[in-house]
């Protein structure tokens, strides 16, 4: 429960931080995942750069029809942001499912996204939102789709020296309905499975469907097969069920102490259907 020694820097600007990161230092944001791993000596960084308090990473603003969220924004700020609650409620709803009050007070959006825990909540919502992940290093900035960003278990497109600096989500209220549904692992509170759905309907038919899933396998994913099975179809529960049943197809479902692969796959279908139903009920 004692971390190894490390050097600590708390630069005053993003530029300084990026320079240190370029030299091989590792970023520390809220520390909600990193610090427990350091205490168990499963992570042993030699130099930490504290980016958790940089004002340049701490904003939520609407710009050009989208909402830009600085990576340093905490889960609590996401869940309680009037802007997000009004215009992108899915992300706020998802943030409220993360950990507990204390974790949401410290943990950051960027930190969680960069960590890419296969049971984390955000990936489901971000996939469903067609979110963009902005990566920044001393070399510059690039913007990736979620599918380009989340590569595998704890593995992302981040290069050494690069951090997640911003997440961009669409202004998404009104006709679109969204929901995140989560089956909690009883001990840790992480998702055994979590499903985010985002739908639009017109004339009794699905006109847009997005489904993001977390927890089922080693990496959160966008369930395009479920989306394709629904778009253009009648809004019926039978169609939802049939489409949701496809959600685990092609996925290598995880198996652990808390859920077998078979059960996880079943839950993924059940929770996808629940998310789709709840999203529908919220769409105009």
């Amino acid at each position: 429960m004692i971390a190894n020694s490390f050097e600590y820097s708390a630069p005053g600007s993003l530029k300084e931080a990026l320079a240190l990161l370029a030299e091989g230092a590792k970023p520390l944001a809220g520390g909600m995942s990193l610090i427990p791993m350091m205490k168990l000596r499963l992570a042993n960084p030699e130099h930490l750069v504290d980016i958790g308090r940089l004002p340049e990473l701490n904003y939520i603003r609407e710009e050009g029809g989208a909402i830009h969220i600085g990576a340093g924004v905490t889960h609590f700020e996401v869940e309680s942001s009037p802007l997000l609650l009004g215009k992108c409620p899915l992300l706020a709803e998802t943030a409220a499912y993360i950990g507990d009050i204390q974790v949401r007070n410290r943990g950051t959006l960027g930190g969680s996204v960069a960590h890419a825990d296969p049971s984390a909540d955000y990936p489901a919502a971000l996939h469903a939102l067609d979110a963009k992940i902005v990566l920044t290093s001393s070399e510059g900035t690039r913007t990736l789709s979620t599918e380009e960003f989340f590569l595998d278990t704890f593995t992302t497109a981040l290069d050494p020296g690069e951090i997640v600096s911003e997440v961009i989500v669409p202004v998404d209220a009104g006709l679109t309905g969204t929901s995140y549904q989560k089956f909690l692992q009883p001990a840790s509170g992480f998702a055994i499975v979590g499903a985010a759905a985002r739908v639009r309907q017109e004339g009794g038919k699905f006109t847009m469907v997005r489904v993001g899933v977390t927890g089922l396998s080693g990496n959160g994913y966008r369930a395009r097969n479920v989306e394709d099975a629904l778009v253009g179809q009648d809004v019926t529960d039978a169609n939802i069920k049939a489409a949701a049943a496809l959600v685990a197809d092609g996925q290598d479902a995880s198996s652990d102490l808390h859920a077998t692969a078979e059960y996880r796959a079943h839950l993924a279908g059940a929770y996808t259907a629940r998310a789709l139903r709840a999203a529908l009920s919220r769409s105009a």
Binding site: I35, P36, R53, Q102, R106
Partner: peptide, 14 residues
Amino acid sequence: KAVKSCTMFAVQAD
């Protein structure tokens, strides 16, 4: 803000 003081380094509280 309520936080878990076992998951924060003292330097982060400067």
